[in-house]
């Protein structure tokens, strides 16, 4: 069960999106999210969806990975849409009487539900585009670079990035360990699949205690190892693979921004 976790969802590849500089990708993803909430006209919505589809095609990543990313969010998306459908005041299209309440679906409700559904689906898809095409290491590198101007106001950019890198690095290790602990406790008759919720939560204790003990031990050992090699923060540290913003990145960003402006122009139509 734990062995199947895909870390950071990254799907290795050689597409244009994969080769882009992570800084550019992060900024453009932020732009994407802002865009999503600035759309107004149906035409703009359609154009933006088409642009997203083009990006998915450009990433050369199988559509099922995007769907897999949507699955855990499905409940929230449907829930939000349904709430909007029934609880938006306006011109009633249909109504039903349940006990003393009148439940009605309004024209505005249908519109809101559709818009919320659209926004959430594209929000997840758009951010998936970033995480699917960028390795966790590149991602943290990008975040570190983007945060680095903030070091002036004492934001520990390097340390934040380092912590993220370490956290990502230890996910598979801890997943493997969880698997072993689970097996060891199952061998002693522990039942992790009980239908009873309270029993199931109780069953987690024999799993979590050894896991936490081991995580703290590993953290301690890692700290000692880093200390032994005289690691100290980010001062004048160089990287093995420096990322640079190249011509391709600038070209991509320009096209991206141009598309965004065109889509916004459609809002007025």
């Amino acid at each position: 069960m734990f062995k199947d976790i895909i870390i950071g969802q990254y799907v290795p590849g050689k597409s244009v999106l994969h080769r882009l500089d992570p800084k550019i990708k992060i900024i453009l993803t932020l732009a994407y999210i802002i865009m999503l909430f600035m759309l107004k006209s149906p035409l703009a919505y359609a154009a933006f969806a088409a642009a997203t589809a083009a990006l998915i095609a450009l990433s050369c990543i199988n559509l099922r990975f995007f769907l897999k990313g949507l699955r855990p969010m499905l409940f929230i998306i449907v829930f939000t849409a349904v709430i909007n459908l029934f609880f938006t005041p306006g011109e009633a299209l249909a109504s039903a009487h349940v006990f003393r309440w009148t439940i009605s679906v309004t024209k505005e409700g249908v519109r809101m539900a559709a818009v919320m559904f659209y926004r959430l689906v594209l929000l997840v898809t758009g951010t998936s585009l970033l995480t699917l095409t960028t390795s966790p290491l590149m991602l943290t590198d990008g975040i570190e670079k983007l945060l680095s101007p903030l070091t002036i106001v004492r934001v520990p950019a390097h340390e934040i990035a380092m912590m993220m890198t370490i956290a990502i690095r230890f996910i598979p290790t801890l997943a493997e360990e969880t698997d072993k602990i689970q097996k060891a406790q199952t061998a002693r008759g522990a039942d992790f699949s009980s239908k009873n919720l309270i029993k199931r939560i109780k069953a987690m204790i024999p799993l979590l205690v050894p896991l936490f003990v081991s995580a703290f031990r590993r953290a301690d050992e890692l700290a000692t190892a880093m200390d032994a090699r005289c690691y100290n923060g980010g001062s004048r540290r160089t990287r093995l693979h420096e990322s640079h913003i190249g011509k391709a990145d600038i070209l991509y960003a320009s096209v991206y921004i141009a598309v965004c402006i065109s889509v916004l122009a459609l809002n007025a139509v």
């Binding site: 072993k180 061998a187 008759g189 204790i205 050894p210």
Partner: peptide
């Protein structure tokens, strides 16, 4: 699992109480 007892390599993986 009662009849076939298995002790894993690292006791750290099972001691928790």
């Amino acid at each position: 699992r009662r009849r076939v007892g298995l002790v894993f390599q690292y006791p750290e993986h099972q001691l928790f109480e």
